[in-house]
Amino acid sequence: MLKINNLHASVEDKPILRGINLDVKPGEVHAIMGPNGSGKSTLASVIAGKEEYEVEDGEIILDGEDLEELSAEERAHKGIFLSFQYPVEIPGVSVTNFMKTAINETRKAKGLEDMPANQMLKLIREKAELLEIDRKFLSRSLNEGFSGGEKKRNEIFQMAMLGPKLAILDETDSGLDIDALRIVANGVNKLKSKDNAVVVITHYQRLLDHIVPDFVHVLYNGRIVKSGTAELAHELEAKGYDWIKEEVNA
């Protein structure tokens, strides 16, 4: 589904990704771990199409199509979803109106009519329930004054609403207490199917207890330096990243 070949990317002429290779198949969960500053969030942003990042070399292929020329919105229309590490506050736009706009713009891009209002309401109600989100919450301005946990839950609510093919969860576990972590992980697991895939970017093992990965990759200095199964995450949790760094630098 997603194939990344030799991806090099930089921001303001500073190279961050230095040759990433990744192959994600439908139905799989991949975890990308690594120390701070290794390029995890950059990788997420580059896949989602953030313009500040310059792709210097390599390619990102989604279902056989090179994404290079596609804007962030076009990538979203093709089924890429990024759960932000720091969701942006948008005063004046309610969660509901934001979702309606996002869904209908995506439908428009696919040549579909707007979703009928009653169907939209039903979908919102259903997905809000899944993430244990209160109705009142939906009429609040997007992310404005939300707690860290509320913001992350809202990200996964948006994921549930949009039903992406490939979801990238960037540090979704940061700022979550244990209850929120359980709700978020439960939401992600319910949304998983044999047709979609999830890439979990995280610093810690704890989210991976709830969302169990098929593969774990370690990103260091802009490269994937080690790949393994869920077992690798446990090893990293126990031993930290220093041994990886030593291995790489040796």
């Binding site: 953030k50 962030a72 919105e73 948008i90 004046g92 996002a102 713009e105 891009a109 948006q158």
Partner: peptide, 28 residues
């Protein structure tokens, strides 16, 4: 710009995202 990327990453095209943000700005 970070708000623009956020909106666009949800499938809202640039022009509409810009409009939505300006609309939200004046709205209250």
């Amino acid at each position: 710009e970070s708000a623009m990327f956020y909106l666009r990453s949800r499938g809202i095209p640039e022009k509409e995202a810009r409009g939505l943000l300006m609309f939200a700005f004046s709205n209250n």
